[in-house]
């Protein structure tokens, strides 16, 4: 048995001295037997209170926390009904026991955890839509027009002036003086 346990950790096609006497088919049988361990399969759906408490204990839950999945034909035995949590929705700064999975030791995971890992679709993800072109133009006009209006209306004294007065225009009765006789 111990030998088989060691074998199950090895690759089937690797010919090591220990595995000489065992055929690759045997090794593969041990490896596949592991995932068919009945401990990994959900049990029967709990009917009585006693079965409920037993199932809760099996999944590291308190009896009042445990709730079987809805009996709509898709329920997976006694597996508990847990809220969906995508890995992107889990806090990346929390000191998780397994930071890559963002899970804790002994944590009861929802049944869809395997399809809620990194890179998979997240229905709760917030995707921002691009502004339509007319909204962009409208908002840009508001922004730049508002800035221009602000400068034109409130900042008259802070404009750029040359050190000169305006050239005098002729007006009847008004005398303008020059500097040189012509």
């Amino acid at each position: 048995m111990n030998k088989l346990r060691v074998l199950s950790q090895m690759r089937a096609f690797k010919a090591l001295p220990l595995t000489r006497k065992v055929s690759p088919l045997q090794v593969q049988a041990v490896r596949t037997a592991f995932v068919y361990t009945p401990d990994w399969v959900p049990g029967k759906r709990p009917e009585t209170e006693e079965e409920r408490i037993k199932a809760a204990k099996k999944y590291n839950l308190l009896p009042e926390e445990y709730e079987p999945q809805d009996d709509d034909g898709f329920a997976q035995g006694d597996y508990p009904k847990l809220p969906t949590s995508h890995i992107d929705d889990r806090d990346p700064f929390y000191p998780w026991d397994y930071p890559l999975l963002r899970t804790n030791y002994g944590e009861t995971l929802p049944d869809d955890f395997i399809i809620s890992t990194y890179g998979m679709f997240n229905p709760n993800e917030i995707v921002y839509k691009k502004m339509p072109w007319y909204e962009q133009i409208f908002k840009a006009t508001l922004l730049y027009g508002g800035l221009t209006f602000f400068i034109w209306f409130f900042m008259l004294e802070y404009r750029y002036y040359y050190p000169k007065f305006e050239s005098p225009l002729y007006k009847k009765g008004v005398v303008h003086y020059g500097y040189e006789k012509k």
């Binding site: 005398v175 003086y177 020059g178 500097y179 006789k181």
Partner: peptide
């Protein structure tokens, strides 16, 4: 100015 020239139109 003593006699400042006036601009003539």
């Amino acid at each position: 100015f003593e006699d400042r020239p006036v601009k003539v139109m």
